[in-house]
Amino acid sequence: MRSAKDIERSFRRADLDIEVDVKRDYEIARDLADLHRRSRPCGTSALGSVPRRMRLGYLALAAVVLVALVTAVLVSRRGSSGSRDVAPPAAPMSAAEMLTVGRLKAVYRQGGPDALEAHCEEAAEKVDGKPKEVSIKDLIVELEGR
């Protein structure tokens, strides 16, 4: 007498073999595969077979990559041209900062006497007055002497 547990075990482990006729099996597989190929809508591309949600994902990914590429190109262009042609915007300087020896030397080297004079006048305007004691000529002599 077998218990329910025995029945359970023997049914679970039973060797329930099935053999199929190879030739007939091949024909059935071929017919089904033909049906599968015919059932596919004409002109469906590999992407066309992708579910709609995944297609949207692909499009979003493509858009992100495109935007990233354009941004990278623009940034690199701006970086390279900016370093050559466009000076970074100068922070406003006080008159004291404008009249340091280093600043005056830099202005004189870059723009010459005219630039130096304009620079000094601009600094003088900030303190509301012109330096009368030191002329530009004396200043240049002083700067070149150092």
């Binding site: 049914f11 039973a14 060797d15 329930l16 073999d17 099935i18 053999e19 006729d21 007939r24």
Partner: peptide
């Protein structure tokens, strides 16, 4: 039936 499938004796019994 086209007899393309043969079941084992155990399968028939169960």
């Amino acid at each position: 039936p086209e007899q393309w499938v043969t079941y084992s004796e155990q399968l028939e019994r169960w």
